[in-house]
């Protein structure tokens, strides 16, 4: 079972790389059109230290941003989940805000807080990924069947007890579903900032320098590195999910 969970994805990854290598070779594409996996290794190796330090920049800012977006999303979600008036009042605002392409917000933020690159990046991550979390929590809380509240309310439980003994755990599966989406969105946020407003840090910056120096394999290598970080963060979320919301898993 566990063995399959690791080997099957590895095999599919291998098949994917072979196919990729083959299709580039078959079409005779030059590496500026499409680099093949075998072009990527040299790029990775050549810039290994940059990949490590920039990868770390991107990762920590994404994780900090994502953690803060959980707090923001939880705040909005709880307010909208418990108060119908607040839900009606806030929903259109949040939906409208979420509909703004974040690429257009990046320069605005960068101008607002000139020089605070880490903070700007984290801010964009929060703005881009709190929305699914807020929505999932508010829906989870507002659709709690009244009987669930009644069993505790009829015993004189406080609102807070109902929240942490029933409402919150019951919402966790939806929350983790949203967190997986938010985790991928968070990387988009970090890289938007790193690419649009380059400030010499992060994988986005490495991508940008690849572009400037026409090092196409490097650009592809950055994309792969981002994918790997994305997979890493995604499975961290999955791990937390199985710890805290494993009960919701259907066999």
């Amino acid at each position: 079972m566990n063995y399959n969970k690791i080997t099957i994805p590895l095999i599919s990854l291998l098949i994917f790389c072979l196919f990729w290598e083959w299709i580039v070779w078959f079409n005779g594409w030059p590496n500026y059109k499409m680099a093949s996996p075998s072009d990527l290794w040299p790029a990775f190796w050549k810039f290994r230290w940059l990949f490590l330090s920039y990868g770390w920049d991107t990762l920590w800012r994404t994780v900090v941003g994502l953690s803060l977006s959980i707090l923001v999303g939880l705040g909005f979600g709880v307010i909208m989940g418990f108060s119908k008036t607040m839900r009606i009042a806030l929903y259109p605002l949040l939906v409208g805000f979420n509909a703004i392409p974040k690429a257009t917000v990046v320069p605005v933020i960068a101008l607002m807080f000139v020089g605070f690159h880490d903070m700007n990046t984290i801010l964009i991550v929060i703005l881009i990924s709190f929305f699914p979390i807020a929505v999932s929590i508010s829906i989870g809380l507002s659709t709690l069947e009244p009987e669930y509240k009644d069993i505790l309310l009829s015993l004189g439980a406080t609102k807070f007890e109902i929240f942490y003994k029933i409402a919150l755990p019951k919402t966790l599966p939806e929350f983790f579903g949203a967190l997986k989406v938010a985790a991928t969105l968070a990387f988009i946020g970090t890289n938007l900032m790193e690419i649009i407003e380059p400030h010499g840090k992060g994988l986005g910056h490495l991508f940008d320098s690849g572009k400037i120096s026409a090092d196409y394999p490097l650009m592809f290598a950055v994309l792969i590195a981002l994918a790997l970080l994305g997979i890493f963060l995604y499975y961290i979320v999955v791990m937390f999910e199985s710890i805290f919301a494993g009960w919701a898993e259907r066999n």
Binding site: D150, S154, L155, G156, P169, K170, A245, W247, A248
Partner: peptide, 29 residues
């Protein structure tokens, strides 16, 4: 706290086992 209730829908908490479900009111009162 001297009242107990049960409904048509048993509303057990899926993340607790049966024993911990039964204990729930004691955690409040």
């Amino acid at each position: 706290s001297t009242v107990g209730m049960a409904f048509q829908n048993p509303v057990l908490l899926e993340w607790r086992n049966i024993l911990d479900n039964v204990i729930l009111p004691l955690e409040i009162v």
